[in-house]
Design a protein around this nucleic acid. Structure first.
Length: 472
DNA sequence: TTTTGAGTTGTTCGA
DNA sequence: GTCGAACAACTCAAA
């Protein structure tokens, strides 16, 4: 029996894995491989938080493979060298993988494919990450979509693809091949800053499927009404599982079909389609991780300021809802979706910092960092992307706080220094009378910062800046 | 080719 | 306190 390598990348699952299924189908014995080679990932190698997640995702993958008699081969170093060496020592005749869509990775994979073909290998790539390949969806004119609604209507005209079944019998590759220990990949940080992440996720024990089931059972019915409240855990928090492919959109949709129909199901399904749209835009506009989709924004008068950026990053802006969000990100590797919009709007509009700076920070601190979604989100906030927010839509951090965190639960959780401040001042501590602050044990400017910018002035400055772009 | 309707997530102002 | 309009025009996508 000939051997095929199944090269795992961002598809760290056994179920609904078309590359694995195809390799088995073609009659190969299977050698599953993961290579840690960040320098071969181009500009967007995984950040620190993503690496932490990856470490645990690999443990979960290894376990799933073991249950089918397969043992995961780990390597690190130069990608092509390592794969070549595995091919040589295993005498593999084929390599199967699932596609990725980041521009640098597409280029890299194309080169590898060429290289392997020249070496006489069978090379086979598949789709595990998307409902539909980005090049198969197009407008009547054959162009890429730039607006979500018509894109989602176009998807609705197609049949939703079913998850790919696990092959009944998998023949493992038996001979010994050299594998490094998981710890040797050095994915975990040297300084142990991950205890907050650990508690928030309990990711060691929860498989992606269990996590999905838990969400669908407990939260889907109230998803529509409660998903905007950051102090509740009413969103799915599936994003890191999706980012590393521990779960695919086909599986999510199939599971959704078994749930009671309703607004919750509808709203959540749309979010899955937004992810699809993000990949569609990234694939068709590959420069967007670095450059605005609307080129007139190349001239935008940003006011880069490293001190302002630092205060935003650390959660020291003096606006509680913003600071709570930034601290949630720092502590848990994740931020609630609504608060992502609030902090992004604040950085880009009130502070006039380039959206690329925010995207870079998110990239390094999010466990769910995903180039397509991160790029779409930040260009949306900057008003320069596909289906972006109109320039005059500027989130007011006080109003957003009062509207979505009215009892201050979220803010108090991540800003314990404000714990004793009454509800009516919790989103604007600088307006509290001296006596109220004193009773709450708050010394503004010491225990919690004064606002870094005046909201009205910041808003007016942003409107003026966007005004400058008009007509250009 | 031209026309037409529509477009994730808000805020502020004035009646 | 509540409500609707203004914010600005432009681009997209389909008919």
């Amino acid at each position: 029996m000939e051997t095929a390598i199944v090269w795992f990348r961002r598809d760290l699952r056994v179920e609904d894995n078309p590359a694995l299924a195809a390799a088995v189908e073609s009659g190969f014995s299977i050698l599953p491989v993961f290579v840690w080679a960040p320098e071969d990932e181009g500009k967007w190698a995984p950040g620190s938080a993503s690496k932490w997640w990856l470490h645990h995702a690999l443990i979960r993958l290894r376990k799933q493979l073991q249950q089918r008699g397969l043992s995961l081969l780990l390597r690190k170093g130069h990608l092509q060298q390592e794969l070549d060496s595995i091919i040589e020592s295993s005498a593999a005749k084929a390599i199967f993988w699932n596609r990725r869509y980041e521009p640098d990775i597409i280029r890299r994979d194309a080169q590898l494919k060429e290289h392997f073909k020249e070496s006489g290998l069978k090379v086979s790539s598949h789709n595990s990450a998307l409902l539909f390949e980005p090049w198969t969806v197009a407008t009547g004119e054959g162009k890429a979509y730039k607006v979500f609604t018509p894109f989602s209507k176009a998807l609705a005209r197609n049949q939703t693809p079913e998850p790919v079944a696990i092959p009944a019998r998998i023949q493992p590759f038996e001979a010994r091949t050299h594998s490094v220990e998981l710890e040797a990949l050095n994915l975990l940080p040297k300084i142990p800053w991950t205890s907050g992440i650990q508690t928030f996720w309990a990711a060691d024990s929860q498989s992606a499927k269990d996590w999905l089931e838990g969400f669908l059972d407990e939260s889907l019915v109230r998803y529509h009404s409660r998903r905007d409240i950051p102090g509740e855990l009413s969103t799915s928090r599936l994003s890191p599982y999706l980012a590393w492919g521990e779960l695919g959109p086909r599986q999510v949709r199939a599971a959704l079909q078994n749930c009671a129909a309703g607004k919750g199901r509808e709203t959540f399904d749309r979010e899955v389609l937004w992810r699809e749209f993000a990949y569609h835009v990234l694939y068709n506009f590959p420069k967007t991780p670095e450059q605005p989709l609307q080129s007139r924004f190349n001239e935008f008068p940003w006011k880069p300021d490293s001190e302002l950026l630092r205060r935003w990053q650390k959660g020291l802006t003096g606006y509680p809802i913003v600071d709570a969000g930034m601290r949630q990100l720092w502590q848990t590797g994740w931020m609630h979706n609504r608060i992502r919009m609030v902090v992004a709007s604040f950085l880009v509009k009130h502070l006039l910092q380039p959206w690329q700076q925010g995207a870079a920070w998110f990239w390094d601190t999010l466990v769910d960092a995903d180039l397509a979604s991160n790029t779409l989100g930040w260009q949306w906030a900057g008003g320069c992307g596909a289906d972006a927010a109109p320039y005059f839509r500027i989130f007011n951090p006080i109003l957003q706080g009062e509207k979505f965190d009215s009892n201050g639960y979220y803010v108090r959780h991540y800003l314990p220094e404000l714990h004793r401040l009454p509800d009516n001042y919790i989103h604007k501590p600088w307006e509290a009378p001296a006596q109220v602050l004193e009773n709450a044990g708050i010394n503004l400017g010491e225990s919690y910062p004064m606002p870094v910018v005046d909201l009205k002035a910041g808003r007016d400055r942003a409107l003026k800046a966007w005004e400058e772009l008009k007509g250009s």
